[in-house]
Design a protein around this nucleic acid. Structure first.
Length: 435
RNA sequence: GGCCCCGUCGUCCAGAGGCCUAGGACGCUGGGUUUUCAACCCAGAAACGCCGGUUCGAAUCCGGUCGGGGCUGCCA
């Protein structure tokens, strides 16, 4: 058994193609079959090496690997642009056999009328197409480059693909491919036409839906595990209402024949939720490693030892509340050796006479504090609240903005503890007007 | 227009004739917890497009209809 994905490098890898690749891969892995990646770059006008790299990199990022194809075998690039002579030769043979004919310099496949092409589709069942509805189609362009129909078909034959699983948009072209294969005396593979992914407007996902590339989700701080998991439950489910599962589970339960026939709308909200679930599920060490890497990347520098120490204190709190990796920097920013700025608007919101007095009092107590630890911080700050007879919100929110710069931060006592005693005293002083 | 595919809560999925007064998840609403934001817990609203037929019985089978989508390129 051999399956394949054949992306065209005319754009970044988008989630629709990624999902098709994923389903092919899952089925191959489930059956101990082979998975092949080739590059369908017959559209030389729009294909670029950058897109090619983007597609390969993002496939790998998702954890999809392949046994044959792109950069596996030094004797074959598995790029259609390197096989143009092969396709031209096939087209000429068909021409000589009278199966195809020349038309204004191009070569057209002659479709025999009053015929029925039938095949069994894994998800659609028995399919029948009348050849009366199919026009003679171009297989070789005037410039001698092959069309998709020719190149794809020849490759599927040459690379001995046994199951062609692709998007439903190609369902109507399948009879053309079968006719070509028959004309070439090739064994007809099985076909499986996967439902398309739609945008929120119910239309085939495309550029106009904004960022639909896998790369854009990576940039948004989505984890490959979450992306993989979410894509796999679009059009398929392992049953038992299970939604969160790992790669191995997906492989052992996946079956192309259980894929739904109806299209699915890609819901970013649920992806985001799932991403949060994955973040929460990580072991502490795994999350720390990932967090530091992410923070350093967004800072474009390495972290200092002191910064790492401070961040480590707050990380368990952060792990519980972020949705994407990109939310990290906003949570730990106040612990970095970067210019500390307090949001003026928010400060004005929380500043008050009571707040001023409270800040003054706790600062004094911090200066006297001998054992700076979480328990002592909390006890002292609550005691001062009581002494002053003000609500937690009034004292704590002012402290929060003074210490972290904003009204939204990790839990206050932990934040103070992570920041350290003297920076805390200094930041409080900054916001006390009559000091 | 022609050909083809699809049709269960807003969204994703469960349901393969009685277990369905239709289940789970996201989102949403309300509540709990609470120093913020989250996380977490509880509760709630929310769907079988419609019409026929088969059957003792249909979300499940059949037909029609309506709706959505895809293809109809010397794009893929």
């Amino acid at each position: 058994m051999k399956l394949r994905i054949a992306p065209s490098p005319t754009g970044e890898l988008h989630i629709g193609n990624a999902r098709t690749a994923l389903f092919n891969w899952l089925y191959a892995r489930n059956n101990n079959g082979k998975f092949l990646v080739r590059i369908d770059d017959t559209d030389t006008e729009r294909s670029t090496p950058e897109y090619e790299k983007n597609i390969i990199d993002n496939l790998s990022w998702l954890g999809i690997d392949w046994d044959e194809g792109y950069e596996i075998d030094s004797s074959n690039t598995y790029k259609q642009s390197d096989r143009f002579t092969r396709y031209e030769e096939v087209a000429n043979n068909l021409l000589n056999e009278g199966i195809a004919y020349e038309d204004d310099g191009a070569i057209r496949f002659k479709v025999e009328k009053n015929n029925v092409i039938s095949f069994k589709d894994y998800v659609r069942g028995d399919m029948e197409f009348s050849t009366n509805d199919i026009e003679d189609f171009v297989i070789l362009r005037t410039d001698k480059t092959p069309t998709y129909h020719l190149a794809s078909t020849v490759d599927d034959i040459d690379y001995e693909i046994t199951i062609v699983a692709r998007g439903e948009d190609i369902l109507s072209s399948t009879p053309k491919h079968i006719m070509l294969m028959e004309a070439l005396n090739a064994k007809i593979p099985d076909f499986c036409h996967l439902p398309l992914l739609f945008g929120p407007d119910g239309k085939k996902l495309s550029k106009r839906h904004g960022d639909t590339s896998v790369a854009s989700f990576k940039e948004k701080g989505i984890l490959p595990e979450a992306m993989f998991n979410y894509m796999s439950i679009l059009g398929w489910s392992p049953g038992n209402d299970l939604e969160i599962f790992n790669k191995d589970f997906a492989i052992s339960n996946f079956d192309l024949k259980n894929v739904l026939g109806n299209p699915a709308i890609f819901d970013t909200k649920k992806l985001l939720w799932m991403n949060g679930q994955y973040i929460r599920s990580f072991k502490k060490e795994t999350f720390h490693e990932l967090a530091f890497k992410t923070i350093e990347e967004s800072l474009s520098r390495s972290l200092f030892a002191e910064e790492i120490k401070r961040i480590e204190v707050i990380l368990p709190e952060v792990q519980e509340r972020i949705e994407t990796l990109n939310d990290l920097i906003g949570q730990v920013g106040f612990l970095l050796d970067e210019p500390f700025v307090v949001n003026d608007v928010e400060w004005n919101d929380v500043n008050s006479e009571n707040a001023q007095l409270y800040l003054m009092n706790i600062r004094k107590r911090f200066k006297e504090m001998e054992d700076f630890n979480l328990k002592n911080i909390e006890e002292m700050m609550r005691a001062e609240l009581k002494k002053q007879n003000i609500k937690p919100k009034e004292g704590f929110q002012a402290t929060r903005v003074a210490i972290t710069g904003t009204k939204i931060s990790p839990p206050l006592f932990e934040s103070i503890f992570a920041l350290g005693l003297s920076p805390t005293i200094a930041r409080l002083a900054e916001k006390i007007e009559n000091l």
